[in-house]
């Protein structure tokens, strides 16, 4: 039974919102119940942005994640500080170690450190750091298939951005590889 409650967080422009949307979209394509809830308002303008994503086999009650996140994907330090306490016991945190140079404090959760910006840079564009993180998350949880995420991406991008698919696919792969050894 899947009931994933994921927080995606970072600063504006890191693509945390679209990362969460893609995960929701893919969940929907696979027939699961999904919800995507963003933070909104002034904090979005350059500050820390985040979204709560729920992917579940059963109908979703509250789309708000309160201290019971199964996972958090944090792209910058303020997000790590803000959301470490939101994870449930045994939850996992995926940390963008390119921009976060410290470790988590909690002992009851698992941590995975992914140098997302470096990996994204290596494969051609820093912009896909979010996809590297998503790839890592999917490798660890198997919530949805990577192919479904690509299918969702195709729908979001449309024909005009079809050429960006291979880069995103690569980013997902490299993210997965980064946590395989951890």
């Amino acid at each position: 039974m899947i009931n994933e409650r994921v927080i995606c967080a970072g600063f504006g422009g890191q693509g945390v919102m679209s990362m969460g949307q893609l995960l929701s979209y893919a969940g929907m394509i696979e027939g699961k119940h999904v919800s995507w809830l963003p933070s909104y308002g002034p904090e979005m303008r350059g500050g820390t942005a985040n979204c709560n994503v729920t992917v579940s086999d059963t109908p979703i009650g509250s789309p708000i994640i309160t201290h019971d996140a199964t996972a958090a994907i944090v792209m910058n330090l303020p997000s790590l500080i803000k959301f470490e306490s939101e994870l449930e016991n045994g939850g996992m945190m995926l940390i963008n170690s390119s921009l976060i140079d410290r470790k988590i404090e909690r002992k009851d959760i698992k941590a995975y450190y992914v140098p997302a910006n470096e990996i994204a840079g290596e494969i051609g564009s820093g912009k896909v750091a979010n996809m590297v993180m998503l790839g890592a998350y999917l490798e660890l949880t198997k919530v949805v298939k990577v192919e479904t995420v690509i299918e969702a991406l195709r729908k979001v991008f449309g024909p005009s951005k079809e050429h960006l698919i291979p880069l995103n696919e690569k980013a997902l792969q490299r993210g997965a590889e980064a946590v395989k050894e951890q």
Binding site: W36, L37, P38, P63, I64
Partner: peptide, 10 residues
């Protein structure tokens, strides 16, 4: 409310 307005669902 703000949540209904801002969230996404199928």
């Amino acid at each position: 409310d703000g949540m209904i307005g801002q969230m996404m669902e199928p």
